[in-house]
Design a protein around this nucleic acid. Structure first.
Lengths: 155, 155
DNA sequence: TAAACATGGTTGACATCTCATCGAACTGCG
DNA sequence: CGCAGTTCGATGAGATGTCAACCATGTTTA
């Protein structure tokens, strides 16, 4: 109690508000587009993208959860559903009896490859087309730095 | 069919990926923090912020939905729940027999005022502290421009 | 080695969101 | 007026996400 709050300056206030609105609108629009035009939800898409980035398309639940900033239970439920649709399989981990891998299947790769062009087009139309290369560099810098900080303070 | 896709350049690819990861991590973290420390979910918070921005804390469902990029049914469900907790009330619209207003209550204002310092502190620690004023200006510019474009293309 | 603790993932109950559909009220046009 | 089309919000069913246990395995410590 009695803590003094470091309130936001008008500039900070303004920037943060704008950024939040960008977030709300851009992600709302984008995930509805993806969902409507492919048979993947935004969540499916995020999982599959992560798996294609990783050797053999195989990753531990834990690591995937950390990368996406998901609860482990959400991961568990979601992977079970995706496995049911044949997009991924669950695989036991020989080194650690508790652990398990998520592995992307051929169908999973096919699904994301089918969705990709659409997704790219949407990203362009909704976002990239309205941003200059210089701005994009600034944005990338900010993003990397903040993500690094967030990862450090795993708390 | 046969459409050629404008794929992303490596720079675009990189920037977009970083931005997406920022989104995933920052919002994941932030909404868990808000939820944990106040009795408001991120969704509640967004609604209340919008209502405090608007004259008399009163806004049409439709307008609120548009501002947050929510489905109208989500709005309906969510407002019903918030009304149940006394944060807002539903009010008939005299001009349009179908329509209705959402109005923030005293309890709603109290709730968001209680949550605000905490939220501000989190926003600082997780984001603002790692971004320079110049970068912040660029970010605000980008955000405003893209939001404007998104609003124009209501499709 | 055995007891305590930590970790990785699962489960079930419940909250929340989406989708399709509805009914009531407005709008436009013959 | 009278009908067709549209808009606003509500509703219910099913998909998805969260929270709080839980179990099985690993790890530490005495």
């Amino acid at each position: 109690m009695g803590e003094t709050v470091r309130w936001l300056t008008p500039e900070e206030q303004h920037a943060w508000r704008s950024f939040v609105r960008l977030h709300e609108k851009l992600w709302g629009r984008l995930s509805r587009l993806i969902q409507a035009e492919s048979k993947l939800s935004a969540a499916d898409f995020a999982v599959l993208v992560n798996l294609t980035d990783v050797p053999e398309g195989r990753q531990r639940y834990q690591d995937l959860a950390r990368a996406l900033e998901w609860e482990k239970s959400r991961m568990s439920h979601h992977i079970a559903r995706m496995a049911g649709r044949g997009l991924v399989v669950r695989e036991e981990c020989p080194d650690d009896g508790r652990g398990a891998f998520v592995v992307i299947t051929e169908a999973g790769r096919a699904a994301i490859e089918a969705a990709a062009p659409l997704h790219v087009e949407a990203v362009r139309e909704l976002f990239l087309d309205h941003v200059t290369p210089a701005e994009l560099r600034v944005l990338a810098d900010i993003s990397e730095r903040v993500v690094r900080k967030l990862d450090e303070s795993v708390s």
